[in-house]
Design a protein around this nucleic acid. Structure first.
Lengths: 336, 336
DNA sequence: CCTTGTCCATAAATGCTTTCATAATTAAAA
DNA sequence: TTTTAATTATGAAAGCATTTATGGACAAGG
C-alpha cells in the first residue's frame, strides 16, 4: 500500500495525499475527509524510508552510553527515551563500552544511520587528553551532540551537567563538621564528573587542613563486584593500621561496600563509621540504616537536555552549557 | 557526497560503485580498487534512507520494554543490544510502560519505523485474557516478534523463556527440606513469568501438604519503594501474629526488604528467617549475608533469542519456543 | 565467425516531499 | 452585474540516493 494506491482510491493526486498526511493547509475539508477515510480504511502508513529520503530525517536521536545496565545510566536512558518520545522522536540505543575505539565506531555508526542528534550519556565520553575528544568534535560537524554529565567546549556540542564539585565539597564539609576528621574518599573513574567529585572532596579537606594524599583511593571494578571489593579493600586498610571514621564514595555501590565492611566488623553506622554515597539510587534503600547519598537531579538534567536538543533542532539558539546543583539526601549513615 | 559524485570521480557508473559497496562480484580488482580509493578519500558513506528504500530494510530491530531502568530489564536490554550489534543490527529502544494501550501504540510505532523484527523484553507483554494479546499477533503479521520470558503461540512469534516454574518449585522444596515449614511467598506481578513462579511455589507447597492460601501475597509497588514496603509489610504480618521462618520473593528487591525486616527485628538470617530472591541481580551482593537467589541465565536466554531472530531473518526455520532451566545460587540467606 | 563469459553502463524502480504551474473559488472594484 | 485581482485548492513532475534488472562491449575459445 503506497501513496499512489491511496491517491487513486481517493480520486486525488499523491500531492494531495501527502498534504493531508503532513497536515499542510491548503486542502479543502471535503477532500481532506475523503483522503483520510481511505487512509483509515486501508490502515495506510507512509513508508518511513521514502519519507526519510525526502525529508532527510527520520526523527530519530542516537543515544550512546557505555553500559546501559549500569544503574545510573539506565535511569538516564529511561528518562531520555521517554522525553524524546514525548517530543515525537525515537531513540536508537548504542552501548559503546568504555574503550575509546569502540566509542568512536559506535558514534560513527549512529551518524551513518542518519540520526538527527546524538546524546552521549555519562561522563566517560570526555577524556583528559584534549586530542582524545576530537572524535566528538568530528561527530558534531554532522549533527548536534549533547553531553550529559560532561562538558566540552566545541562547536555544535552542548552540555548539561550537575555541579558535582560543589555537591561533593559540601558533603565532605558536612561530614567533617559532624566530627569525622579522617573521611576516606573512594572513586572508580577519572571521567569528567569523577574528576569534579574528587576535586570537591580535595578542596573541602584542604580548606579544613585535613587533606592527606593517602586518603583518596581509586577502586577499579565493574559495578557488580564493587560491593565485596570495597568491603575487602577497607578490611585490608584497617589491617594495615589505617584509621578512618568516615567513607565518602563517588558511587552508591561502593558506599554499600563500606556498609558491608561495617557490618562484618561490628562497627556502628554512623557513630563508628559515617558513610556517604553518590547518585541517590535505589541502593540507598537497600541497607540499614538507609544510605545518605548525593542526588544530582538526574530527571531534571535529562529534561533540560531534551529541551535544549529540541530547541537546537528547531533552529533556536540554545545555551551551550547548563549547570544544575545537587543535594545531599541525609538518611541514616551520616551524623548530623 | 552521493554515489554520483563518487562514480564521477572514479570514472565509473553508479552501478559499479554500488557493486563494490555491496561486495558484489563481477567487478575487476582494478576498478574495485579505484572506486575504493575514491570512497576512502572522500569518506563517503551511502545514504541510509536511500539504502533503506532500495533494500526495504535498515537492519534495525525494535526493542520494547516496559521500563528500561528496571534492574533486570536493563540487563536484558544490554545483552540484547550488544548481541544485535555483533550481528550487524542496530536497536531502536522504546519504553512502553505497563499499560496495554501505550504498549500497543509503542509497538505500532516500531512497525511504522520499519524495523526488521521486534523483541518484547519481559513477561509483562503477555496477558491472561487471550484477546488482550491480539496486538502482538497483529504486529507479527508484519515482522517477526520475539518474546523474552513470556510465551505466546501465534504465527511468526517466537518465545525464549526460563523455566520459572521449576526453578521456583525446586527452590521452595529446598527451603522446606532445610526445615522451614512455613515459607511465605511474595510476588508483585501476575505477568506470564509471575504466574509461573507462583505456580511453582504452589506446587511445591502442595506436594508437601503445606499450602495455605494466606501464605502467598502480592505486593503492588514500583521497584524503588519495594525494599521498605516489603519490610513494613512483614512487620505488620508479624504484629498480626502470623508466624514465618522463610520468605521466598519473586524478585531480589523484595527479598532485600525481607533482609531489612530481619535486621530491624534482630532476626538471624538464615536461622530465624531464611530468604530466597529471584534474578540473581547485583543486589544479592548488597546485603549481609549474601542473598540466595535464583539465576535464570539471562545472558543465555538473550543469546539464544538473538540467534533465533537472526535465523528467522535469514529465512531459516527456527524453533518457536525454547525453554532454559534456572538455578538456585546459594549464598548466606538459606539453610543448607 | 559465432558462442560464452566477464565487466560494466543505462535505466527503471523504490515511495515519498515539494516546487511550480494551473484551475477553481472568493473578494474587491468598476 | 461584470470584470479583475487575490486567494485557495489541486495536479504534474522533478527531486531524493540508492539497488538491481537488462543488455551491450569486449576478449577468449571453439
Amino acid at each position: 500500500m503506497t501513496i499512489y494506491d491511496i491517491s487513486e482510491k481517493a480520486g486525488v493526486s499523491i500531492a494531495t495525499v501527502s498534504r493531508v498526511l503532513n497536515g499542510s493547509s491548503n486542502v479543502s475539508e471535503k477532500t481532506k475527509k475523503k483522503v483520510l477515510d481511505v487512509i483509515n480504511q486501508y490502515e495506510y502508513t507512509p513508508n518511513a524510508f521514502a519519507r526519510g529520503l525526502g525529508l532527510n530525517t527520520m526523527k530519530t536521536i542516537g543515544i550512546l552510553c557505555a553500559d546501559s545496565s549500569d544503574l545510573y545510566l539506565a535511569k538516564a536512558i529511561y528518562y531520555i527515551e521517554r522525553k524524546l518520545r514525548a517530543n515525537g522522536y525515537d531513540s536508537i540505543l548504542c552501548c559503546s563500552g568504555y574503550d575509546l575505539e569502540t566509542k568512536k565506531s559506535s558514534l560513527n555508526l549512529l551518524i551513518t544511520k542518519k540520526v538527527d542528534g546524538i546524546i552521549l550519556v555519562g561522563s566517560s565520553y570526555i577524556y583528559e587528553k584534549e586530542s582524545d575528544n576530537k572524535y566528538i568534535c568530528d561527530a558534531a560537524l554532522q549533527v548536534p551532540v549533547m553531553l550529559l554529565n560532561a562538558a566540552l567546549d566545541a562547536p555544535n556540542v552542548y552540555s548539561v551537567v550537575s555541579d558535582d564539585f560543589t555537591s561533593m565539597y559540601e558533603a565532605t564539609i558536612q561530614m567533617i563538621n559532624s566530627g569525622v576528621k579522617d573521611p576516606l574518599y573512594f572513586y572508580n573513574s577519572t571521567s569528567y564528573s569523577g574528576k569534579e567529585k574528587l576535586a570537591g572532596y580535595r578542596a573541602a579537606m584542604e580548606s579544613k587542613k585535613l587533606l592527606k594524599s593517602g586518603n583518596m583511593m581509586q577502586l577499579y571494578q565493574g559495578s557488580h563486584e564493587d560491593v565485596p571489593a570495597m568491603a575487602e579493600h577497607l578490611s585490608r586498610l584497617a589491617a594495615k593500621g589505617v584509621t578512618f571514621h568516615g567513607v565518602i564514595a563517588s558511587d552508591d555501590t561502593m558506599a554499600l561496600g563500606a556498609m558491608k565492611y561495617a557490618r562484618e566488623n561490628n562497627l556502628k553506622v554512623p557513630e563508628d563509621l559515617a558513610i556517604i554515597g553518590y547518585n541517590n539510587s535505589m541502593l540507598t534503600e537497600c541497607c540499614d540504616p538507609g544510605l545518605s547519598s548525593i542526588d544530582n537531579k538526574l530527571e531534571t538534567l535529562c529534561q533540560h537536555l531534551i529541551t535544549t536538543l529540541m530547541g537546537i533542532l528547531s533552529g533556536t539558539e540554545m545555551p551551550k552549557q547548563t549547570l544544575f546543583s545537587g543535594e545531599l539526601i541525609k538518611r541514616g549513615t551520616t551524623l548530623n
